[in-house]
């Protein structure tokens, strides 16, 4: 199974950095997510995760290091978490970490959003201050 690497870019749109590694089972989504076509960008990531969780079936660690995401991207984050939750329910070994900048002002808003992700998808997200 191929790895996915997408270099993030802060241009007209904000493309997040993506690193999905099929050998180590470590997946990272970092930077900023605000895209012209959000679904088009995230669909290959869903497909990768679905293939990994149904064929490779090894432990999976998902690290979020997002500084900014718009509401369209937040729907895609929900979709990712739902795939991970299904894997966990099926007996898969899943760890989800959310790295955040503890120094950032108004971090409460971000933490609230992550709490909402947990409530919506029923998956545990470990909050890790940087």
């Amino acid at each position: 199974m191929e790895n996915i690497h997408i270099e993030g870019k802060h241009g007209v749109n904000f493309i997040p950095t993506v690193d999905f590694n099929a050998e180590t089972g470590v997946c990272e989504l970092a930077g900023e997510s605000y895209l012209e076509d959000t679904i088009e960008f995230y669909t290959p990531l869903y497909d990768w995760l679905k293939q990994y969780t149904t064929e490779v079936k090894k432990p999976l660690v998902f690290n979020f290091r997002l500084r900014y995401f718009n509401t369209s991207s937040s729907k895609c984050i929900i979709d990712i978490l739902n795939i991970l939750k299904r894997y966990e329910t099926a007996g898969g070994d899943v760890t989800v970490n959310w790295y955040y900048d503890a120094e950032e002002e108004d971090i409460e808003d971000e933490l609230e959003e992550i709490e909402d992700f947990m409530i919506e998808t029923n998956i545990k997200i470990n909050l890790v201050p940087n």
Partner: peptide
């Protein structure tokens, strides 16, 4: 926040849903 979570789980294109 509850309303946002509800809307987010509705498919896009459903009247009133989708856009949060």
């Amino acid at each position: 926040r509850q309303y946002k979570r509800k809307l987010r789980n509705m498919p896009s294109g459903v009247p009133g849903g989708g856009n949060i």
